[in-house]
Design a protein around this nucleic acid. Structure first.
Lengths: 267, 267
DNA sequence: TATCATTTGTTCGTATGTATC
DNA sequence: CGATACATACGAACAAATGAT
């Protein structure tokens, strides 16, 4: 058992160990749900120090292949080629009478309503830097898997001014928010922006993320189609390791004229 | 200068240092583009060991706040509340005559055409596990920022069989692929799935990612709307630290009947 | 061009804390 | 309680890149 498996030092040894273990997982040498050899065993297997093994294991955690549990071991949770188990539909539906329907989400707690100053991406997307807004924060989860997601609705006071019913019940379901904007005379259009990053410490707490897997972040901007004026911004944050977002894309009719809205403001 | 700044030990000391530095960056104590104190200096500042500082810096790298360069130092690249500089439009447009228009992308190299066996998410989305397909790989980049993205088009042989022109020129622009599918009699519908994860070593190489920032991954599935049969799958991989995907959402008309296509197959 | 101080990257060893069984 | 295993932290050494001398 102590024949050290062949690794040289070209990239880093930690990277080589990580790649080796990842390959072993993909090949099925380590099965999903099983525990890989302990760190001490791997030190012997590969003839490297503890720090090297820990770096390799950290990389495997980030790639979403394993999950480490203190006192127990490192468990294989994916072979790397799997579809995330939770699909979050971002579909927007509307019936003949003009009412809106959105995929349902289960709330984990009562929504928290606060007054905030717009900042960061929402402020940019709403084009209302430092303006005030009503923020409705919800913790949502998938009943099947228990995966938690954070949902935030930002209603600028400027929007509440032209649709006063929003300020009265900002915690209403999103479909009702859309209904009220429609009744206020707006023709709604939606644009969604998606990116990802590692979670901040407070986000790891709130979402119950044990590992260091990235966070999927989506901003849905609801605008008045007539004047291209942004009215509302919703933010969703979900663990990327277990979630994927689903969009139904409808081709837009366009004459030969090129109207590609490009925003490449290099920071 | 050696007055150690106050930190206790309740979360981890590394996490506290990371949070402290992140707060300092957000507050503007360390400006974007500037170099934060060296690791040796931080050891003195906080009275902790080198490993602790390195763990903290690694966390900041994952959050996309700093970039470290050997021999130079750690540079602040973002305050954390910024919109990614590169916006990748996923819009699909069509003119009156039925031709398709897609946002243009600049190719870094000639496309690589290979024959592969479908596996992983594309196989699931195309519902063609282990079937053969033509794979067209492109390396694309944003001229403004130089950000590189990987693009892959997967044409199942089953689809090439019903639209033979695809196999003759699989490296054609995507809009022409859509044109040919339309001419073959299909009514196209599109669904996009988005997730993220840490890149594998080979992906870091190909995309030129220095740090450990996550990778945004999107699969666009083109289907025949009449029979709900998947025809084509495109995959885009882009560094999430600098990119966001943009979707224009069109509400679909729906009667009262609930037709939410749900896929929560718990792995 | 060559050298050198600075700074991060990698690796090792060791010790202690803490969760699991 | 004790053995196992991961988590955290300290210290030390050398490698490699950078920039100034």
């Amino acid at each position: 058992m102590s024949a050290r498996e062949h690794i040289q030092r070209r990239p880093t040894m930690a990277a080589q160990v990580a790649e080796k273990v990842a390959a072993d997982i993909k090949r099925g040498r380590y099965q999903v749900g099983e525990i890989v050899p302990s760190e001490a065993q791997m030190e012997q297997m590969y003839g490297v120090g503890k720090a090297t093994i820990r770096t390799a294991m950290a990389e495997l955690k980030h790639m979403g292949l394993i999950e480490t549990r203190q006192g127990k071991g490192s468990i294989v949770i994916s072979t790397g080629g799997a579809v995330p188990p939770v699909t979050i539909s971002r579909a927007i539906q509307r019936n003949g009478k003009g009412s809106w329907f959105l995929p349902e989400m289960t709330e984990a707690e009562a929504p928290a309503i606060t007054r905030t100053s717009l900042d960061g991406p929402p402020a940019v997307h709403l084009d209302q830097q430092d303006q005030d807004a009503i923020s409705v924060d919800r913790m949502v989860y998938d009943p099947n898997t228990g995966t938690r997601m954070a949902h935030r609705t930002l209603i600028p006071l400027a929007t509440a001014a032209v649709a006063p019913s929003l300020a009265e019940a900002p915690e209403a379901p999103t479909s009702e928010i859309y209904d009220q904007l429609t009744q206020a005379g707006f023709t709604l259009s939606f644009t969604e922006f998606v990116t990802a990053r590692a979670p901040f410490p407070d986000e790891r707490m709130a979402l119950g993320l044990d590992d260091a897997a990235p966070l999927l972040i989506a901003y849905r901007v609801t605008a008045d189609a007539e004047h291209d004026r942004p009215l509302l911004c919703e933010e969703v944050r979900a663990p990327a390791a277990t979630c994927q977002l689903a969009f139904s894309l409808a081709p837009t009719r366009t004459p030969a004229k090129r109207s590609t809205r490009r925003r490449s403001e290099s920071a």
